[in-house]
Structure formats: C-alpha cells, structure tokens
C-alpha cells in the first residue's frame, strides 16, 4: 500500500502541506481544518508534519457506533459523512490523535489520502512528505528525540 512517508529532517516548516490539505479537503485555505499538522521542535528551530498512519487496527473505524468509517480504494480509513452523527467517539478511540471534529459540518474528519493523490505530498517543496509504497513506520520518533534534547535539559535531565 502507498503511504504518507514523512522525512522530518527535510521539513522547513513552510506549512504548504496544511494549506493544500485544507483546500483539497474543505475547499478553503484554512489550516485549522488541515488533517496534517506541522509542529515545531526545539524552540522553532525545526519542524515536522504529523498525520494519520492509516493503522491496521483502525481504532476510529471499529469504535464508530454507526459504521460511518470505512476503507477506501486507496486503503485510507475515511468518514462517510451521510452516516457520521458527530458523537466524537472516534476522537477518543484513536490513540494517535489524528481524527478530528468539524464544528461547521458536525462530522468527524480525517486524512483520506485525498483518494490516492495526497495534496500535502504534492505541495511539499522539499519532499519531506512523500506518497510512496512503504510499510507505515514511526517516522518522527528519532527526529523528535534528537530535537528535544535541549527542551528536556532545561528541566535538569
């Protein structure tokens, strides 16, 4: 399966992924509704995007009481808007924090890999987000460990 591979060392924090994601997902440039989210590390000296892994369990999908989350042809877990009632159970079931609730539509929303052509990967100018055939992995941990040493040292580690 093709997945969103994140190469955090290449991220410049330009946020084009968030803009592209929200535009494709909602029709408006509103990073607050992006389902890929860039976070700063080490006092804004580096950045990394974070999004749904399309995990094997599909915690959101199995938790949904009305079967409103399904698997698309691209292999993404996706919310079926007509079925979703907006109960938010998926948001506490997902242990990654990558399914959201939209107050305007009163539905849950998440990364659906843009139907197999993810806008975030297209928009990324540095190939920090690559849509490629790969095994999903913990793309960020090594980077985060390295880029948070000083943050932790402040606390007298």
């Amino acid at each position: 399966m093709k997945v969103l591979k994140i190469v955090p060392e290449k991220c410049t924090g330009c946020l084009r992924c968030e803009l592209a994601c929200s535009y494709v997902q909602t029709g408006a440039f509103q990073p607050a509704k992006s389902v890929i989210r860039v976070s700063p590390y080490e006092g804004h000296t580096s950045y990394a995007p974070y999004t749904c892994t399309q995990c094997a369990e599909g915690w959101c999908m199995t938790a949904c009481p009305v079967g409103a989350i399904t698997i698309t042809a691209a292999g993404a877990k996706d919310v079926v808007d007509d079925r979703c009632v907006g109960c938010k159970l998926c948001t506490i079931a997902c242990p990654y924090g990558t399914i959201f609730y939209d107050h305007d539509t009163r539905k849950a929303f998440k990364c659906d890999l843009c139907g197999g052509a993810p806008a975030c990967a297209d928009a990324c100018p540095t190939a920090a987000i690559v849509y490629a055939e790969a095994e999903t992995a913990d793309w960020l941990a090594d980077f985060a460990v390295e880029r948070s040493a000083r943050l932790l040292a402040i606390g007298g580690r």
């Binding site: 094997a56 369990e57 941990a141």
Partner: peptide, 21 residues
Amino acid sequence: ASRTTARLLPETTLGRPSRAP
C-alpha cells in the same frame, strides 16, 4: 519522542487488520 507510534502500529485487537463495517 517516547516512540508511542512505534508501540501502537503493530497493535490490533484481533491479531489482524480490521475490516471495514
């Protein structure tokens, strides 16, 4: 940074990927 993602990825309730309802 505590590698929670790596811990979670192999976790499934039934020992296999879930199917769509």
